[in-house]
């Protein structure tokens, strides 16, 4: 959590964070944040791409901070737009052995399995 708070503060030195209902306009994205998001997203950016990503992400977040103008305290987050519920399958086996098709596009196959670099447990 400490790590997070630090990241959060570094994102905007002028106001700490943008939760104060104001457009902040100061989402400065640090190298650490880009590094961290790169680990989450499994993307390796070149130094130029990193600089670009810092700028683009900062600008986008400044723009997204516009949402803070809205008072949404009483509003339920809407994940699904229509009230459709309870869509089920019955517990009946419908699929047979389709191994060959499933492996058809695999970059590397060995012993009917997907071959990957060694994983460490």
């Amino acid at each position: 959590m400490e790590d997070l708070d630090r990241r959060r503060q570094e994102n905007c030195k002028s106001c700490g964070f943008s939760e104060r209902g104001q457009v902040c306009g100061g989402n400065r994205i640090t190298d650490e944040t880009i590094e961290y998001v790169g680990i989450l997203a499994k993307l390796e950016l070149s130094p130029e791409e990193k600089e670009r990503a810092k700028k683009d992400m900062g600008e986008m977040l400044d723009y997204i901070d516009k949402l803070n103008e809205l008072d949404t305290k009483e509003v339920e987050p809407m994940s699904h737009v229509f009230p459709v519920n309870n869509v089920f399958r019955e517990d009946v086996v419908t699929n047979g052995d389709d191994c060959e098709n499933m492996l058809k596009n695999a970059p590397e196959v060995k012993e009917r399995s997907y071959r990957v670099p060694k994983t460490v447990d």
């Binding site: 399958r89 009946v92 086996v93 419908t94 699929n95 052995d97 389709d98 191994c99 499933m102 492996l103 012993e111 009917r112 399995s113 997907y114």
Partner: peptide
């Protein structure tokens, strides 16, 4: 999905998209 949960099949024989 409608794949079987049976134990012991050859690798990737109980799979689908």
């Amino acid at each position: 999905c409608g794949c079987s949960t049976a134990f012991g099949g050859a690798p990737n024989t109980h799979t689908c998209p």
